[in-house]
Design a protein around this nucleic acid. Sequence first.
DNA 1: TGTTAGCACTCAAAGATCATGAGTGCTAAT
DNA 2: ATTAGCACTCATGATCTTTGAGTGCTAACA
Lengths: 341, 341
Amino acid sequence: MLAERQKQILKAIIEEYVVHAEPVGSRTISKRDDIGYSAATVRNEMADLEDLGFVEQPHTSAGRIPSQMGYRYYVDNLMGPQRLERTDLLQVRELFASQMDAVELTIQQTGSILSRLTNYTSIILGPEAIHNKLKHLQVIPLNERSAVAIVVSDNGHVDQRRFTVPDGVSLSSIEKLVNILNVKLSGVPLVRLKRNVYQELFAELDRHVEQYEFLLGVIDQMLLADTDDRIFTSGTTNILTQPEFTDVTQVKALMDLFEQTDTVTKLFATNNAGVQVRIGEENSIATVNNCSIVTASFSIDGRSLGTVGVLGPTRMDYNKVVSLMQVLTTDLSEHLRQLYK
Amino acid sequence: MLAERQKQILKAIIEEYVVHAEPVGSRTISKRDDIGYSAATVRNEMADLEDLGFVEQPHTSAGRIPSQMGYRYYVDNLMGPQRLERTDLLQVRELFASQMDAVELTIQQTGSILSRLTNYTSIILGPEAIHNKLKHLQVIPLNERSAVAIVVSDNGHVDQRRFTVPDGVSLSSIEKLVNILNVKLSGVPLVRLKRNVYQELFAELDRHVEQYEFLLGVIDQMLLADTDDRIFTSGTTNILTQPEFTDVTQVKALMDLFEQTDTVTKLFATNNAGVQVRIGEENSIATVNNCSIVTASFSIDGRSLGTVGVLGPTRMDYNKVVSLMQVLTTDLSEHLRQLYK
DNA sequence: TGTTAGCACTCAAAGATCATGAGTGCTAAT
DNA sequence: ATTAGCACTCATGATCTTTGAGTGCTAACA
């Protein structure tokens, strides 16, 4: 347990370092309005804090910088429920006040505002198609040999895929198939589609329709490809303005990371309710060991829909990011609830 | 007009510099197999080439680097019709041999292979929706208040947009409207849609359907938003491996550039047939004044469909890029022709 | 006359040396 | 318990030196 004065000083160190990105010395701390002690006293406390592992010294004659443990303590115990700047809050409210119909658009703009207000990179994992149910299926022929299959799910998400009609399959038989599927499968979760067909409709389809497998194959591929569309990034270049990323090779590693969908999913996925902070090496992937990731999931009626995330340097304005995320996920959940209604 | 030996030496300088990215000295040139002159002779010629403006000297005791004018001369006169590496050609052929139905997918993969083979960044401006014609229009209601509008064009491109049904508009009237539009407007170029409605269908719609304007508005917005979807970038981080981009601020400027759709369009758009090379300051935008851009448009029956582009440092392997682009656009055009058939 | 060997000269880049000052740890006074 | 004072440390930036790749010029050569 830290003494009150130690807490004060640790808090001050972190807040200074977050702003200036340079080791902070005892004099700097001593001069702050919220600290009433001399530099010497602060120095003593700082030495203690270092022994305890909350701060580090890059070299003997430099100031202190927070350690990962220090940040962790700050996030868990010291961080006050700071108010958001009024202008920031206003922007968020304005965003959701403007009528946005498309789920995709809402999510994209949420990401955009998040990265703009924090100056970090934001990533949003959209709703998983897994939960969606079939609303409508449609096949539109383009010419004798090719057609477009369109799957609309109950949340308004639209998937499409062009395909070539194999020889020996007539357009009319496709039409018949689509009709049957629409009637029988409306409301069925997309992931169950194929199974349902084989379990319940096998006999009927076999009797009426020739070669229905290939169309099911097309639909199946659509749903598979869909997971890629779940990731929305914004403000990718923001990290480039952070002083800790002057090294181009590191930047490249990070940029490449963003393009690997599976890694991104692994990094940002969370099923916890509430805001979660992962600091430095608490992240499993080495590339982001000098980064912190703040995530929060948004949901409707307890059902998680996706995750909002911010990636920045370990020296992050946790206070601001966390409060912003709280507001944002609450508002986003509410907004989506209205849309899905 | 350059003397034969001068051409030889200029060519050698450029080819060395493209590989090693460092000023090349007379001895290096002299030791090449295709040069049979001593370093001293080469030095004399280099001095002449410098006077003529084809090469530059960073400082007195350094080797020479090609000037923009030098590159230009190389591209226009010196560059031989080099064969593509067999493995590269193989990859291209393989790409198009695999059955790809979706136009979007084809284009994306073309970009991906282009950036992989060149190690530069590739950008593709997809077919402009402008030319597309309406194939099918569909509105699928999700619940009492919202619905999805889907526009399928004759090339298989699908646009979608979710919208809220205003009060006082019934679903049945929307259905009626969609039916009329489908019958009357099939085959009409998308850009003409709205005009056609007002010119030809005004009377009929006015008689049968209440409040059709809002749906037309929805469709209009879809088509507007569509221009954004035309741009496919790939290998954005490739430029980070180039030694000329160690400066993070420059990298950021470039990255930000990629996100401005209008600038990208301006930079890469070309209606010329064939491969076009823009070197350094020949590009209108300052951010890319130390870059070169190679573009080529792909087309069907002379109608231009879009542009393939590569962005790299001025020190670019023009020979390789140009030959690759030639093959790629030819094959892509052919492939699309089969798809559109 | 065109080509090449030789040599003095130039200058960026990398290493070595030095001064500066921010910041510490310790001790002694308050 | 707190703080003023002081000697000590060490990264940073400035200045100087060395090194070597490369040039330009001149004179010799084919």
